[in-house]
Design a protein around this nucleic acid. Structure first.
Length: 895
RNA sequence: GGACGUUUAGCUCAGCUGGUAGAGCAUUCGCUUGACGUGCGAAGGGUCAGCGGUUCGAGUCCGUUAACGUCCACCA
């Protein structure tokens, strides 16, 4: 920016893209294994290719970029590994939807035709989210961008699958899974969302064959009764002791099924009798296994009642001998066949009522499992799927966290993680989808032999017949779980893997601890032998102004790109980092973005001020030899700031760091130091002031850069500087030689006096244009002499007199720490009001003094409190006493 | 049914290892102060949800109650 072009307000739109291109041209985002540096690595939570940038991404990526830019400036070889996720179920749904518009279905296109479309879709939309991340200023190493379905990641997936299979940790079997009839696929437990719904308990009556009595039992899903293969009672239940070994007649089907004794039947609940449907209820499945009950499936995979054709297909499979022993039977539901489960429920209830089998209907609120994608009610269903055996994998993953190898920030999420990891059941990883990593298992057409391998077998090793690959694909999270090392080239031992792995910090929302974080942890430990990262920084959700979750259906989402367009990326980033503590949700409030935009503008104008005072060609890159009082004050303050901000960042207290920067820049630097400099800049020897201004400004820009990368770079480029870019400059380090505590105190005495004068003038409504004589009675004459120009400029003094005592009856008098300031303003002073004010202040001081004195009088306090705290109290007491005496003097002078 | 979180100025939120409450916005008053009105200077406003405890001292630690919220859980 050339000096003459300096706009009065900062225009992010004219700056951001240009600066981003500049960084890319400079290749500053790129990281390479470098033995001379320490690595610092973050892998991005790969956004879905279906996705558009939302506030959640904006927050997540802002935090990551802050950390990565900061570490880069500290001299680490900082790698932010970017990429995208294929998001199997979400993408497939989108592609299917798009196809429907063309009148096409998956079946019409076939697998290859469908995948062609899906890849085309990925090409079209996959880059959208990436370009949006760039708008945020994200300093990802784009040369290393990865995709979960690219060759390397797919290789890692196959490697892991085959390895786990060979170790017996992946198995295939008929198990109870969560089936989404809409998406037509199984989903994992983690993908089920529970919603409270109004439902009913239907109390049914089953007749005992042997005794003729009627057994009452309740169900929330009466349509499953067609698949009942037993009724359970508790062996200890005296009410039913006489029924052991008996049978009941299943209504409607008139089928005889056994009464079994099982612990699952809880005597305290309902009537203590439970119907058992092993093929459609997870508990009943277990009961069925324990008692070797037949499994009878009555629903099709698209949520209808099974019919004759379904039964015939299943019977044929079982008869062929190729089915596993645990293959469920299928019922021909007869008149109910083809009905949806809801239609069947209605019809079955009508028939049960007609037959006198329905005793009563009880309304009930209960949690119903729904698909996280489409919120269709989940049907638990026995189905042949692939599973990861979790117990052996979870154990080391629990230990790693318990031993502190991995830390959650904030710490409370550790419990969240451990609960998940300890309670998790086997992970259903197969999906009846086409978009994703196809399962590397092949089955023989003839003999049913199975081969699990990375490459397709030529022929069945047993009988030589042709083999076909399992049509199913893997859960998206299976590949995401490998992300921290698949992106580094694993299973190959690449230099990247060696250098950047394990990574350092994982930044993500608490909503995917179970989905992703936990799976990366056990995967990393199991396959690489190392925890994939040592710190997990958890953030909350960005909610709307009313505190509601932003969602498409509510239409309350705020588009980060629109915010960037009107306020700038820096303002958005700054707002997201401000007042946000780890793990807590935050609300998106436009006023907060405005405040951040205003702050950027403030900084911009401070820079403008410096540039306007800087002669062309002058390059004040170092501090001057001689530092004045105010120089020492600001330099010392900055020095402390650099230390504090660094410490806050180390502890992931980004919100605190950003608050300190804001306060320093706006309050200390702009409102005070720049003002203090003005007289010197206009005087005979402005050079030293310029040097300090540039020095502190440069330092501020560095500390602020991770938070507001664009504007800081833009300003830095326009100021005198060394090096190519702010983003690769060195992070400020605390320097004991620049610590001036005594000067800080002195300067603060002057500032307090200025503040007190302004305050009094304000109360009396005296405009700044009306200057006044100022008399200062003080023991710190030297300090206040240095402060004369400041008092004249900032406290509207026409002249400043310093002495031990001035006899000025009727002057306004103000007592501060270190001085009594007297301003003769007879025409403005209402003596009575002035006396009242002084009295009020004296009362106030008296009250404070009483408090401190009481505390010091308490022997327990002086004995037990740390010496420093007691000393502070003593100092305070003395100050208050002094102040009170001075106030008394002022009061006396008024008489 | 478990677990967790939140409750601080009118609003949105900070407050790290206990030392006597802060910011932004809003409100009120005063400013053509040559960087900035996206600004400058000031002011008002809080028994830090209630109760109990530990401590010389608690917004900060412990217990408990209440309201709101989140996550987990196979309630037939």
């Amino acid at each position: 920016m050339a000096k003459q072009d300096l706009a009065k307000t900062y225009e992010p739109r004219e700056v951001e893209d240009r600066i981003y291109d500049f960084w890319v041209q400079g290749n500053y985002f790129h990281a390479e294994p470098n033995p001379d540096k320490k690595p610092y690595t973050i892998v991005i939570p790969p956004p879905n290719i279906t996705g558009q940038l939302h506030m959640g991404h904006a927050l997540d990526n802002t935090l990551q970029d802050i950390l990565i830019r900061w570490r880069r400036m500290q001299g680490y070889e900082a790698l932010w590994m970017p990429g995208t996720d294929h998001a199997s179920i979400a993408t497939e749904a989108k592609v299917v939807e798009a196809m429907r518009a063309d009148g096409l279905t998956k079946e019409m296109l076939g697998r290859d035709g469908f995948l062609e479309r899906a890849w085309a879709w990925k090409e079209k939309y996959g880059n959208r989210i990436v370009s949006q991340l760039k708008k945020m200023g994200s300093s990802c190493d784009w040369e290393r961008e990865r995709f979960t379905m690219d060759e390397g990641c797919s290789e890692a997936v196959k490697e892991v699958f085959v390895r786990l299979y060979n170790e017996g940790l992946i198995y295939r079997g008929n198990r109870m899974v969560n089936w989404c009839p809409h998406c037509n696929t199984s989903i994992s437990d983690a993908e089920v969302e529970y919603e409270e719904q109004d439902g009913h308990f239907w109390h049914l009556l089953y007749t005992v064959k042997e005794t003729g009595e009627q057994l009452e039992l309740a169900t929330t899903r009466p349509e499953t009764m067609l698949g009942d293969t037993a009724v359970a009672i508790n062996a200890e239940d005296p009410r039913y002791a006489h029924l052991h070994g008996c049978h009941v007649i299943l209504p409607l089907l008139n089928k005889e099924i056994p009464i079994v004794c099982d612990e699952h039947a809880d005597m305290t609940k309902g009537t203590g009798v439970v119907k058992i449907t092993p093929a459609h209820d997870p508990n009943d499945f277990e009961v069925g296994r324990r008692h070797d009950l037949p499994m009878v499936r009555v629903f099709t995979y698209d949520g209808k009642m099974t019919g004759a054709a379904d039964k015939a297909a299943a019977d044929e499979l079982i008869a062929s001998g190729r089915a596993a022993a645990d293959e469920p039977q299928v019922l021909d539901c007869g008149k109910y066949a083809g009905m949806t489960t809801m239609e069947a429920r209605k019809a079955i209830l009508e028939d049960l009522t007609a037959g006198g089998y329905l005793k009563e209907v009880e309304p009930l609120k209960h949690d119903v499992g729904t698909c996280y994608r489409c919120h269709t009610t989940i049907e638990p269903m026995v189905s042949k799927q692939w599973f990861v055996k979790m117990e052996p994998l979870a154990k080391p993953a629990v230990e790693a966290v318990e031993k502190g190898e991995i830390t959650f920030v904030p710490e409370r999420f550790t419990k969240n993680y451990l609960n998940w990891m300890k309670g998790t059941r086997d992970w259903c990883i197969s999906r009846q989808l086409w978009w994703g990593h196809q399962i590397p298992a092949w089955y023989c057409d003839e003999c049913g032999e199975m081969v699990v391998a990375k490459e397709a077998p030529h022929a069945c090793p047993k009988c030589g017949a042709a083999m076909e690959q399992d049509p199913d694909t893997l859960d998206t999270w299976f590949s995401s779980a490998l992300w921290p090392f698949s992106t580094m080239g694993w299973p190959k031992q690449t230099p990247e893997l060696d250098y950047f792995y394990p990574t350092d910090t994982l930044v993500t929302g608490y909503d995917i601890i179970g989905f992703w974080v936990s799976r990366m942890i056990f995967s990393g430990l199991a396959y690489t032998g190392k925890a994939p990262f040592h710190t997990v920084l958890i953030h909350g959700l960005v909610r709307d102004a009313q505190g509601r979750k932003m969602s498409k259906s509510l239409g309350n989402g705020i588009d980060p790109l629109e915010i960037i367009d009107t306020y700038g990326a820096d303002a958005l980033r700054f707002m997201l980092a401000t007042g946000n503590s780890p793990g807590n949700d935050m609300r998106f409030i436009t006023e907060k973005v405005e405040a951040s935009r205003n702050f950027a503008n403030k900084l911009w104008n401070a820079a403008r001020f410096i540039l306007m005072n800087l002669p062309d060609g002058e390059m004040p890159l170092t501090l001057p030899v001689e530092l004045t009082l105010e120089d020492r004050w600001i330099v010392s303050k900055f020095n402390t700031l650099a230390k504090a901000v660094t410490e806050n960042l180390e502890k992931f207290e980004l919100g605190i760091a950003v608050q300190k920067l804001y306060d320093f820049i706006w309050d200390n630097f702009c409102d005070w130091y720049i003002e203090l400099c003005k007289s010197r800049l206009q005087g005979d020897d402005p050079a030293a002031a310029r040097q300090v201004l540039v020095y502190v400004m440069t330092g501020m820009l560095k500390l602020l850069h991770p938070f507001m990368p664009f504007i800081t770079e833009e300003i830095w480029q326009s100021l005198p500087h060394e090096g190519e870019s702010l983003m690769i400059s060195r992070w400020p380090v605390y320097d004991e030689a620049l610590n001036f505590p005594e000067e800080e105190r002195e300067m603060e005495r002057i500032m307090e006096a200025i503040g007190a004068i302004r305050n009094r003038r304000g109360e009396m409504n005296v405009p700044p244009s009306r200057k006044a004589q100022v008399y200062i009675e003080t023991a710190f004459a030297k300090t206040f002499e240095d402060g004369i120009p400041f008092l004249m400029r900032l406290a509207s003094a026409s002249e400043v007199h310093i002495g031990d005592s001035f006899d000025l009856p009727g002057a306004v008098s103000i007592v501060t720490n270190g001085a009594t300031v007297k301003i003769p303003m007879d025409d403005l002073v209402d003596r009575q009001a002035e006396k009242a004010r002084l009295q009020k202040e004296m009362d106030n001081v008296q009250k404070q003094l009483a408090g401190v004195t009481a505390r010091l009088a308490n022997k327990a306090f002086t004995d037990k409190a740390p010496a420093q705290v007691v000393q502070t109290a003593r100092d305070q007491e003395q100050q208050l006493k002094d102040k009170l005496a001075l106030l008394q003097q002022s009061m006396d002078a008024l008489q």
